[in-house]
């Protein structure tokens, strides 16, 4: 594929006109957070002014992903418990997944399942700010959603390559678009000013051993993606487990006993979700 064609497609991906827009309030909130004298109360008040956004954020923070199911009733409480980085990423996810078409529900479930596994793993490993790992899991396939929205003509071609040649979605993206969703994730993270640790989780989840700044974040998302695919919760665009990088297991110091506990926890959670869907 020529460099010109790749550049043209990158341009279409990032065409601001059609990119999911983030709520205006987020800009103001970001400015406020950057001020040294701002308080959590002020930030919460500003977010709460957008009622629709607040409702969506509260719905998300009370989901099983963050481990506070049904216990967070105000934006201020969410801010204190989860921090601004997580809340910002949740706002991005609600805005992006809002543009999802009906046939992308499987991708939403896959992202949610990955977020649950990432949060569980980070908590088990006693990582600080485990919710940030969960949110990176939630956003790890952001690039797939945006590519589908921005380049709708190429989505069927990617799906055809996956089906006919039994390739991974990532491989098919690279062939059809000239780049994968991991690269798109990095562009979007810059564009939406996501925190650097989340950006690294999103852009290195397929090659976590190459992550330079936050290898643990990339490794957690990598393992989370593997787990959700083992349990086949949701649909990420292809069926099969990705290669689990042994380096990722080493970087996380993940022991076989811990891996089994993680499997047990995730098995129970996915079973509950599947049972809830079929009842």
């Amino acid at each position: 594929m020529t460099r010109d064609l790749r550049t043209e497609r990158k341009g279409r991906i990032l065409a601001v006109r059609d990119l999911p827009t983030l709520p205006n309030v987020l800009e103001e909130v970001t400015r406020l957070v950057e001020r040294a004298d701002s308080s959590t109360e002020e930030v919460a008040k500003l977010i709460s002014m957008d009622q629709v956004l607040s409702a969506k954020v509260l719905k998300m923070v009370n989901s099983p992903v963050y481990g506070f199911s049904g216990r967070i009733s105000t934006i201020q409480h969410a801010l204190v418990l989860l921090g601004f980085n997580v809340l910002r990423s949740i706002i991005v996810s609600t805005s992006v997944f809002e543009v999802m078409t009906e046939n992308m529900v499987g991708l939403w479930e896959h992202s949610l399942g990955c977020a649950m596994a990432c949060g569980e793993l980070a908590r088990m490993l006693d990582f600080k700010d485990a919710e940030e790992y969960a949110v990176a899991g939630l956003l790890h396939d952001l690039g797939k959603v945006v590519a589908t929205v921005q380049l709708p003509d190429l989505k069927p071609e990617i799906e055809r390559v996956v089906a006919e040649r039994d390739l991974y979605y990532l491989e098919a993206e690279r062939e059809v678009l000239g780049f994968g969703h991991d690269r798109i994730n990095a562009w979007l993270a810059d564009y939406w000013k996501l925190p650097p640790n989340i950006k690294e989780g999103l852009s290195y989840h397929h090659k976590p051993h190459l992550a330079q700044l936050y290898p643990e974040m990339a490794c957690v998302v990598h393992v989370g993606d593997f787990i959700v695919r083992v349990f086949e919760y949701g649909f990420s665009g292809d069926v099969g487990v990705p290669y689990l990088q042994p380096e990722a297991v080493k970087i996380l110091n993940l022991t076989p006993a811990q891996f089994e506990i993680l499997l047990d926890h995730m098995c129970d959670q996915y079973m509950e979700l599947v049972a809830g869907q079929s009842s």
Binding site: D166, G240, L244, P246, M271, V274
Partner: peptide, 23 residues
């Protein structure tokens, strides 16, 4: 059961690594 289904699907999920010792 949920787990029995997982067990049945594993060979297909791992089909791309027939000769990889780690996988």
């Amino acid at each position: 059961s949920f787990c029995a289904t997982r067990l049945e699907h594993l060979p297909f999920l791992f089909r791309k690594y027939p000769n990889d010792p780690w996988m």
